[in-house]
């Protein structure tokens, strides 16, 4: 299972998050404005999932377990991005 609501206001991304997860992630984030996303156990994100994070900008917790995302995507997804 790559998407999990831990009940404490954090949505956890785990393992590889394929394109299908985008819909569930968006639904969870829209249902809980302000919920954070914990992605340290995530090992890969499909572009559709990244797009949801970019659009809804939830606070991200932890360092992404996928080095590419941690290096290149994390800075772009920071909530304070002025763009």
């Amino acid at each position: 299972m790559s998407l999990r609501d831990d009940g404490n206001g954090l949505i956890r991304l785990e393992g590889a998050c394929p394109v299908e997860e985008a819909e569930a992630l968006a639904a969870l984030l829209l249902a809980r404005p302000g919920a954070g996303v914990e992605w340290s156990r995530c090992t890969g994100l499909h572009t559709a999932v990244v797009q949801v994070l970019l659009r809804l900008r939830p606070p991200l917790h932890g360092t992404c377990g996928d080095p590419f995302a941690a290096r290149w995507l994390a800075p772009l997804l920071a909530p304070s991005d002025p763009s």
């Binding site: 985008a22 970019l54 659009r55 995507l73």
Partner: peptide, 19 residues
């Protein structure tokens, strides 16, 4: 270096089409 931007202005959140 990598940039990621919306290609067109984002639609309102209620109309979000994740796919």
């Amino acid at each position: 270096a990598l940039r990621l931007a919306p290609a067109a202005p984002w639609p309102p959140v209620e109309e979000l089409d994740v796919f």
